[in-house]
């Protein structure tokens, strides 16, 4: 590169830039001020042209630098570097996406399994409620009406009837629309009727049972069975069995909390 400050051999004597100057100032500052005050010479004109080019180029470059993004005019190596950085970033982001999706799936399946468990618990509660007699039930079944003119029908006959109904698959049984027959139900003869779970029932007894109507009806009516038993000579009652598609059992029992029995693994 040529060097402007050291062209000493070329111009050994400090020549004033403005030859027509009457008194060439020896001081640099004075010379600069003098040059600024006068329009200038040929040397200044050349400098002006070059400075104009410089100013133009500098402004253009500043504008281009501010306007264009970093990729225009970038070198190949820089571009490769940018691409590498970007692909690394996208890899990281994809890993992040996969991780978040896993979390989401885990949460979703968690919710689903919880819902399934809840569903099953609810179904089980329904089943147990029907068996324990804590919920009202409706369904097909039979309505057995036992009339007892002479007072011969007692707990023995009713108990036999209930057992035969249960044997035939009755799922819920109600007596006289007042007492739900459950596992703890007890029957006891009292004066003029039967006491079931503390409630005194009097004839006619109505046994409503939910199950397969045909099976239930058949179970009551066989030789030596419930109907025979009630219509025996010394009991002398009458039995009327009515199969129905819609038997409603509305009474419920309060579930009694077991006091002695505890769930436990045996054997």
């Amino acid at each position: 590169m040529t060097d402007q400050p050291t062209p000493a051999p070329k111009q050994p004597t400090p020549a004033p830039p403005t030859p027509p100057a009457p008194l060439p100032p020896s001081d640099g500052r004075a010379r600069l001020l003098a040059a600024l005050r006068r329009p200038g010479s040929r040397g200044q004109a050349a400098a002006a042209v070059l400075l104009a080019i410089l100013g133009f180029a500098a402004v253009t470059q500043v504008k281009a630098n501010g306007k264009d993004d970093q990729y225009v005019g970038a070198r190949q190596g820089d571009l490769v570097q940018y691409i590498n950085n970007l692909s690394l970033a996208s890899q990281r982001t994809e890993a992040e996406i996969a991780r978040l999706q896993q979390t989401r799936d885990a949460l979703r399946s968690d919710t689903r399994s919880r819902r399934t468990a809840l569903e099953r618990a609810r179904q089980q509660a329904d089943t147990l409620g029907i068996l324990a007699g804590t919920v009202p039930v409706v369904g097909s079944g039979v309505r057995v009406t036992v009339t007892d003119e002479k007072g011969g029908v007692g707990s023995n006959q009713l108990l036999e009837g209930l057992e035969e109904l249960r044997d035939a698959g009755a799922e819920a049984i109600e007596l006289n629309n007042r007492v739900r027959v459950v596992a703890q139900t007890s029957l006891k003869d009292v004066d003029g009727g039967v006491m079931v779970d503390g409630t005194v029932l009097r004839a006619p007894y109505v046994i409503e049972a939910i199950g397969s109507p045909h099976d239930l009806a058949t179970a009551l009516d066989f030789k030596g069975g419930f109907i025979d038993e009630v219509q025996r000579a010394d009991v002398d009652g009458t039995v009327q069995v009515q199969e129905s598609d819609k038997v409603e059992i509305s009474t419920v029992v309060e579930p009694a909390a077991p006091q002695y029995a505890q769930p436990g693994a045996t054997g």
Binding site: P7, A15, P16, S26, A46, A57
Partner: peptide
């Protein structure tokens, strides 16, 4: 190129203040 031209311009200004400015040298540099 702009930075190189700046260098030339400052060199020329210094030469001018030194009293050894020459327009031909400036243009060439």
């Amino acid at each position: 190129a702009v930075v190189a031209a700046l260098d030339a311009v400052f060199g020329a200004l210094r030469a001018f203040l030194d009293g050894i400015f020459d327009d031909k040298v400036f243009v060439v540099s």
